[in-house]
Simulated scan of single mutants.
Amino acid sequence: MLFQKKLERGNVGDIHYANGSIQFQSVKLNVYSYATDGIVIDAGSKSLAKQFQAFFDEQQIDALYCTHIHEDHTGCAAWLQNQRNVPVYIHKKSITEAQKKGKYPLYRQLFWGKRPPFRPLPVPETFHSRTYNWKSIFTPGHSADHIAYLNMSTGQLFSGDLFVQVKTKVIMDSESIPQIIESIEHILSYDFKEVFCNHAGYIKNGKEKLQEKLDYLYHVTDEVKKLFQQGMSVQEIQEHFFPRKYQITTFSLGQWDSKHIVTSILG
């Protein structure tokens, strides 16, 4: 079997999670879906539909809230809408795109499958689940439509792809480091402690880790600008900061690359 697939399930209190992973040779990618208090946050990928659907079948679901349009977060949205008859919410920027079949590079289709179209509604600024009050927080940077969901009743943040890791080493060519910085600054103004990330999972001291990431991005930004002013090229700055070459860069034909961190900062 070329692609190895796996799903781990568990819970943190009343928050149930499914962590789906798919591996090809040494490249391993994963994505989480969370279910709590009648809502699901992100729908997993189409390539792991069998695994995620088994998880969803065990949950009571009133609605699906998507953090953004990327196919590893919306791959089973159509199934939830059609088979479980639940409303699906996403940022208004992505409603038109969601109604069409997913269009993205071949390597992402191989890993995450081909996302079917679905019919979402725009995410409200605030909403209620069965017992909790929620706030939708616009946090662009990883994608233009990115939203984090804050459970205002419990102080738990569902951060989508805003965090992922403290020390960012590669990003997609469509991402914006300056926007990510602004979004983290904004999110840190809210009252929360625990973070549920769609790739790193549960982070008990999540607010502290987001602050660490922000400090790291401040440092990288300052150093990149300083080295550029001293006359170093983009490639020289990249080799200085990010000497390691990651296989995802080759596999994605450069869509994922540390170079994009440098060019994003320099504008």
Rank of each mutant, 00 (worst) to 15 (best):
D42L: 03
D42C: 01
A43H: 11
G44Q: 06
K46H: 13
S47Q: 12
S47V: 14
L48V: 10
A49P: 09
A49C: 10
Q51C: 15
F52N: 02
F52H: 12
Q53N: 07
Q53H: 06
A54Q: 02
A54P: 00
F55K: 00
F56S: 00
D57V: 07
D57N: 14
D57C: 08
Q59Y: 03
Q60N: 09
I61M: 07
D62L: 09
A63G: 02
L64E: 01
C66W: 03
C66M: 11
T67I: 08
I69A: 07
I69W: 03
H70K: 05
E71F: 02
C76T: 14
A77S: 09
A77V: 04
A78S: 15
W79S: 06
L80Q: 03
Q81P: 09
Q83F: 02
R84T: 02
N85Y: 10
P87R: 07
Y89V: 03
I90C: 02
H91Q: 09
K92I: 13
K93S: 10
S94H: 04
S94K: 01
I95E: 03
I95N: 01
E97T: 07
A98Q: 05
Q99P: 05
Q99V: 12
K100F: 14
K101N: 09
K103H: 13
K103R: 13
L106Y: 06
L106T: 09
Y107T: 04
Y107N: 05
Q109M: 11
Q109F: 12
F111C: 02
F111R: 00
F111Y: 04
W112L: 10
W112K: 05
W112N: 05
K114S: 10
K114T: 14
P117C: 11
F118H: 06
F118Q: 08
P120N: 12
P120Q: 14
P120T: 15
P122E: 14
P122V: 12
P122I: 13
V123Q: 04
V123A: 10
V123W: 01
H128K: 10
S129I: 10
R130T: 12
R130Y: 13
T131G: 00
